[in-house]
Every structure is written in C-alpha cells, then in structure tokens.
Amino acid sequence: MDMLAGELTTLAFCWRVERRDGVAIGLTSHDRDLAIDGLRHRAAPGMTPSAVRREIGLGPDTMDVAGALTADAIGAADLLAGRWDGARVTLFAVDWTGAPGRVALGEGTIGAVSLTAGQFTAELKGPAAALARAVTEPCAPECRAELGDRRCRVPMAGRRRFARVVSVAGPAVTVDAGEPSPNAYGDGRLRWIGGANAGLESAVLGSAGAAVTLRAPPAFMVEPGALVELVEGCDKRLATCAGRFGNALNFRGEPYLPGVDLLTRYPGQ
C-alpha cells in the first residue's frame, strides 16, 4: 500500500469498540483526534496493541490491547461493572495525514480484563476462538437450558415485571412490587433501567415478597426510585420444572443418571 511505501510512514493505530448495548467509541494512538467512517476516534497515546499473531489454520488468533484508563473513554468502574464485556473491537492502522486506505490488524471481542495501577489490559478473542468450545454438552442432573430460551420454551411474557427501587443495603434490594410466587426471582435477573447502573444486569440469589437479594452488590450507587426489570428464574431442578412450570417434557438434564459417587460408595450400603 502507498502508506507503507515511503521512507517515512505516518501510521496511527485505531480502535473501534462497539458495546453490546449499542454504544460505539473510537480511539487512536495519534496525538490528535481522527474522523474515520463518520466516527470520531479520540486521541489516546497510551493505548498500545501487543504483537498480533495470525495463523493460517483454524487456531485462535490472540491479541492484547493495553492502555491508560481515561474517564471520558474507558473507565475502571465501567470495566469492573462489565459494561465492556463481550464488546466487539476492530483494530486497524491508517495514515493520519488523510491518505486513503487502511491496514486491518485484527478484530474480536473483549475477554479477560486486568487492572493494575491505573492501567488496563484487555484480551481480544478472534472469531476462531469459538472453535475451542466443547462440541457436546456434559451430562448433569440440572437442566442445561435457560428459562425461556428455545429449548426450555416456557413463555416469559408474564414473567417479567417492572418495579421501582425503594431502598438498597448491600446486595439487598427492596422494590415497590411483590412477587407472584415464593422465591419467584431466585436464580433470575434484575436489569437496571434507570440510574447509574442503567444497562447492567445483576444475578438474583433469592426473593421474598418485595425483598430481592442479589449475588453481589450493585456496581454503582442506587438512588431510590430507580426503574428496574425483574425476570423470574429457575433452579434447574426437575421438581421445579414439573411443579412450577409444568414443563418436564422439555427438561434438559439427566436427574436419574448415577453420578461418580456410585463408584465410591461402601459395599453393602
């Protein structure tokens, strides 16, 4: 390419990051902002990519991106809260003088993120990483489907409810609506719609009336009156599937399959 043909190159690394909630940002290693494909790529001189390994075969490509945390781009609180988990990242090089063309360096989704002394390192998983997943599912007494998915088939239209937060004390959240049945939201999800946690989801440990216990406290401070969506959950046991949902026909587990403990039982017992 022309941008690589001269004795002096004017290349700048660029990142386009698209979160799962639709938010997209652009970053560049250049010392000034660049407008590329209608998106402003903000100057982030501290951002550097590691060596990119590309393979001809089906082996997964690996790449790390490291940089300094900036409040107006990628903050430590948002990284720890999971806002950037699974975000799609495209890495490429352009000529910062405005010459046409670009060099594609890689793309993938954000995987493991580590934070150290104001610096972050994000692992990028390429498309071939999906080939490393197990082809078959392991046998287990619990159901392998998720409540309401295409294998479970339980209709979720009446199992999602909106509520307002009354108070929060650590992982304990009190809302202004009760539950349709005892522990209906246990093993379910609480999706934050309003407030500082908007767009995040919290796993629910259990519920009792208007009290909902999360598996971990909210990532950010919650103001009373914040809007949330409560989604019912399932403990993935056959008894629950049959008794509460009447869905034993679609149960995706092996509750009567002997486990490895059968080999360790004392003879005669």
Rank of each mutant, 00 (worst) to 15 (best):
M3Y: 13
A5D: 14
A12Q: 09
R16N: 04
E18D: 04
V23C: 03
A24G: 01
D31M: 04
L39P: 10
L39C: 06
T48H: 06
V52H: 09
V52L: 10
G57A: 09
L58H: 01
G59H: 07
D61M: 10
G67C: 06
L69H: 10
A76T: 07
D85T: 13
D95S: 00
T97N: 14
P100A: 12
G101A: 11
G101S: 11
G101Q: 11
G111S: 08
G111M: 08
S114N: 06
T116C: 02
Q119M: 09
A122C: 09
A122N: 01
A134W: 14
V135L: 07
E137G: 05
P138A: 13
C139V: 13
G148N: 10
D149F: 07
V154F: 14
P155H: 11
M156C: 00
G158L: 12
A172D: 15
V173Q: 09
S181D: 08
S181R: 15
L190G: 01
G195P: 03
A198D: 05
A216N: 09
A219Y: 07
G225V: 08
G233P: 11
G233D: 10
C234W: 02
R244F: 02
Y256N: 05
L262K: 06
L262Y: 02
G268R: 04
G268T: 07
